[in-house]
Amino acid sequence: MLRRTLLLLLPLLAGCSLPSGSPGSPRIAGETVDTWVERLTPDEVTAAWRSIPWRPTLHEGAGDARKVGKPLLLWLMNGHPLGCT
């Protein structure tokens, strides 16, 4: 049932070039789980904001700002900005 359902997703992959996975990997619509992991992971351009060296808490940021003598830039959201928001 699972594989039949997932085969229905095959058209969504049309035109895409997918790398092969390691032997023995479970497969979805003919491709490996690893390939799907890659597909569902935002690329570096889309997720460039994640490469900013954010400190994950207010107090860690304040502590580091004092150490290096820089102002603190604090970005707040409902739901942690680097988690589920």
Binding site: W54, R55, A62, P71, L72, L73, L76, M77, N78
Partner: peptide, 8 residues
Amino acid sequence: FVPATDES
């Protein structure tokens, strides 16, 4: 800056 984030 020193960039930091938190939950508001």
